[in-house]
Each structure stands twice: as structure tokens, then as C-alpha cells.
Amino acid sequence: MTTFIIIIGLVLILIIYFLISNKIGVKKLNDEINEICLAHERLNYPELDKKTQLEIMETGNMNAIAELVPEFKDKGVPFRLLKEYITISKNELKEHIKISGFIEKHKLENAPNPEHDGIWLLKDKIIDQERGITHRTWKVNNESEIAEIYADLLWNKITD
């Protein structure tokens, strides 16, 4: 009975330890994110050129934003900063998708392998797949519909 009580006590101590350390880790991460956002706010969110904004939206590469605050550039860019730096319209993004070669790059036949994670164009539908398993699909009839769906999906990075 004593051994049982000791084991339960140790398990409770471990649980409390992990809960406290997790809370401390989350607080540290949130503080760092807030510090990064504050540094960008102090810069008054300098305007990025249209080409850079389109590249960020297309590739997800936010180095152009990170480099504005060199002391934090290795820490990453919180997604909430996109609302401050992306000033192009969704229609501009849609038009870019149509003319930039984006659609061709996203054909499943151009993926590194057929099961590669991503949102791919497969004949007359767009598929969202992870580990070769399709999670969502969208039926498309033309390039305009393809661009519209991709623009909506990319635009959700800003609004979510």
C-alpha cells in the first residue's frame, strides 16, 4: 500500500512538473512573439513592394519581413504580421496566380512524388493531400476557378 501511494505521488509530481514547464514554455513563446510584433510596430510596418508581397503569398517565404528586424530574423515571423504587410488585394493575388506559372507548378505531375503533401491540381480537380491521403477536393472547370480557389486558400493565411 505504501509503495502504491509513493508511485501515485511520483506520478502526480511528474504531471504537475510537466504542466508547469509547459505553461512556462508557452508564456516564453508568446512573449517572444509579442516582442517581435512590437519591433515591427515600432518600424511602422514599412511597405513591401507588390512583387515581394506576391512572393510571400505564393511561397510562404517570409524572409523579406523577417529581415526588417535583423535582431529577430532567426526567430521567424508570426503569421499575424501578414495582416500588416500584405496590402495587395485578393484579386491581385488571383491574377498573379493565373499568369505566374503557379498553376503549372501545382499540377500533381510536377510534384516531387505523387504522394507529396500539398494542394495539387489533378486533371479537373484540386486535391489537398497529406501523406498520399486526399483530405479535401474541389471540382474545377477552368483556369479562373483554379485561381479563385488557390487565392482563397492562400488568403486564409492572412485572415485566420
Rank of each mutant, 00 (worst) to 15 (best):
N156G: 06
E58K: 00
N110M: 15
P46E: 10
F79C: 01
L38I: 15
G76P: 13
V26R: 05
F102E: 04
I56C: 04
T52Q: 11
S89G: 11
P114I: 09
E95A: 14
N63C: 10
A64E: 15
G60F: 02
D74V: 14
H40R: 08
K83H: 08
E148D: 11
F79E: 00
P114N: 06
N141L: 04
I6G: 09
E32D: 13
L153E: 01
R131P: 10
T87P: 13
I33K: 03
E145R: 03
P70V: 12
K125N: 07
E148H: 08
S89Q: 05
N91I: 07
G9D: 14
I36N: 00
K125R: 12
I97T: 04
G9S: 14
A151D: 05
R136K: 14
T2W: 10
F79G: 00
Q53E: 10
N22M: 10
L48R: 14
F102Y: 08
N34T: 09
F102C: 03
Q129V: 01
G132S: 10
I86H: 01
E55H: 12
I99R: 14
G60H: 06
T52M: 08
N142R: 03
F102R: 01
P78Q: 15
I97N: 02
L153Y: 00
Q53M: 08
K90S: 05
N22L: 11
E55Q: 15
A39D: 02
F102N: 03
